[in-house]
Simulated assay, not measured.
Amino acid sequence: MRLVIQGSAIRLQQLTHIHQLASAQQQQFIQVGEQAYLLPNQQEISLELRAFCQEQQIDVALVHDQHNLNHLGLAVMDMDSTLITIECIDEIADMQGLKPQVAAITESAMRGEIEFAESLRRRVALLQGLEASTLQRVIDERLQLSPGAQEWIAACKQHNIKTMLVSGGFDFFAERVKAMLGLDVAKANSLEIVDGRLTGRLLGNIIDAQAKADYLERFRQELGLRQDQVVAIGDGANDLKMMSAAGCGVAYHAKPVVQQQASYALNHVGLEGLAHLFAPLSSASTCH
């Protein structure tokens, strides 16, 4: 296994101290990004090392050697608050003056307190009568890719890793994000629109936690990949089944329940951190 550390601005003193805490002896840090480094042949993260990194706002992970870009074949990602910075339904609601009510239900669902499908029905019902043009306004005025999203997808393409967005949000936004990033597949829920207005209902089956896992599994089998060749990235309780279905799961700026169950967690860097987390040793350069 390898120890991977990354942050917004890692200083030499921090590197030196982490090296001492890791008892790395003959091993040297290998640089895998502008502010990302790894130590090969590590077995554990001491409590002292973890506490230091947390205090210094440095992401630290002990990564299995097989979890690298040369080995992976499929990356499956959540959309809202993962590939993009917003929760689309909260922003739609904000344009109706309903954001507090909808955001409260969103937060509760993300923490795993309300079953997702029920929470989604409740939130969508609040949007009844809204002009459909509001969806485009959210894209034009508020939708932004998360920092590092383009770098992460570029790394996937460079290593022939298929990319899939699976969202409990809405296909109107998922298709836009798919086009912006050049993703291979996007799956999301469909809002019912009649006479240019939202009816407050959804079309078809709801994409909930189990559906996310099922889509991952189906695409994995289509591609002829093993489970250990799949990584899933998400931030909410609705992503946990999808992450369990993958060979490894990454909690991205996630709720505590997700961080506890994920293989790895990124709290301080952007999505470019995924490329560093899974950087193959062959692409690295030794730091002296």
Score class of each variant (00 low, 15 high):
Gly249Thr: 10
Asp208Cys: 01
Met243Val: 09
Val258Ser: 07
Ser190Ile: 15
Val250Gly: 09
Gln260Thr: 08
Ser263Gln: 11
Pro256Tyr: 12
Gly224Phe: 07
Leu223Val: 01
Val257Glu: 02
Ala265Pro: 00
His276Glu: 10
Asp228Phe: 04
Lys187Tyr: 13
Val257Arg: 07
Leu183Trp: 01
Ala262Leu: 13
Val194Leu: 11
Gly182Asp: 11
Arg176Phe: 13
Arg218Gln: 12
Val230Ala: 04
Met180Pro: 01
Glu217Ala: 10
Asn267Ile: 02
Ala179Lys: 14
Ala211Ile: 07
Lys212Trp: 12
Ala251Asn: 08
Phe173Met: 03
Phe173Thr: 01
Asn189Thr: 04
Gln261Ile: 04
Gln221Ser: 04
Leu277Arg: 09
Ile206Cys: 10
Ala232Thr: 04
Gln259Ile: 08
Asp228Cys: 00
His276Phe: 14
Val177Ala: 13
Phe172Leu: 14
Val250Ile: 15
Arg201Phe: 04
Ala213Ser: 11
Lys241Asp: 06
Leu274Thr: 05
Lys178Tyr: 02
His276Ser: 15
Asp228Glu: 01
Gln261Val: 08
Leu181Gln: 05
Gly204Asp: 06
Ala186Met: 12
Glu217Lys: 04
Met180Glu: 15
Ile233Lys: 06
Ser190Pro: 12
Ala246Lys: 07
Lys178His: 07
Lys255Cys: 03
Asp239Ser: 08
Ala179Val: 11
Ile207Met: 00
Gln259Glu: 15
Gly270Met: 13
Leu203His: 14
Gln229Lys: 06
Ile207Lys: 01
Gly196Thr: 00
Asp228Trp: 00
Val177Pro: 12
Leu216Thr: 05
Gln260Pro: 03
Gly234Asn: 04
Gln227Phe: 09
Asn205Ile: 04
Met242Arg: 03
Asp184Gly: 05
Ala254Arg: 10
Leu277Gln: 09
Asp228Val: 01
Gly249Ala: 11
Leu266His: 14
Gly182Glu: 10
Ala232Ile: 05
Ala174Gln: 13
Ile193Trp: 12
Arg220Ile: 02
Tyr215Asp: 05
Ala186Asp: 12
Phe219Lys: 05
Val185Ile: 10
Arg220Val: 00
Val269Thr: 15
Gly200Ile: 12
Leu191Trp: 10
Met242Gly: 04
Arg197Ala: 10
Phe219Ala: 07
Val230Asp: 00
Ala179Arg: 14
Gly273Pro: 11
Lys187Asn: 06
Ser263Ile: 08
Val194Glu: 13
Gln210Leu: 07
His253Ser: 05
Ala188Asn: 09
Gly204Pro: 02
Lys187Pro: 00
Pro256Ile: 11
Val257Phe: 03
Gly236Glu: 06
Asp239Leu: 03
Leu240Tyr: 04
Ala213Arg: 02
Asp184Thr: 08
Leu183Met: 13
Tyr215Gln: 04
Val194Tyr: 04
Tyr264Asn: 08
His268Ile: 03
Leu198Lys: 15
Leu266Lys: 15
Leu191Asn: 08
Phe219Leu: 10
Arg197Tyr: 07
Val177Tyr: 13
Ala265Thr: 15
Gln227Leu: 12
Val185Tyr: 11
Lys178Asp: 03
His268Phe: 14
Asp214Phe: 01
Gly247Met: 00
Gly234Cys: 00
Ala179Cys: 11
Leu198Asp: 15
Ser244Tyr: 09
Leu216Gly: 03
Arg220Thr: 05
Ser244Phe: 06
Ile207Tyr: 01
Gly234Lys: 03
Leu191His: 10
Phe172Ile: 14
Asn189Pro: 02
Met242Cys: 00
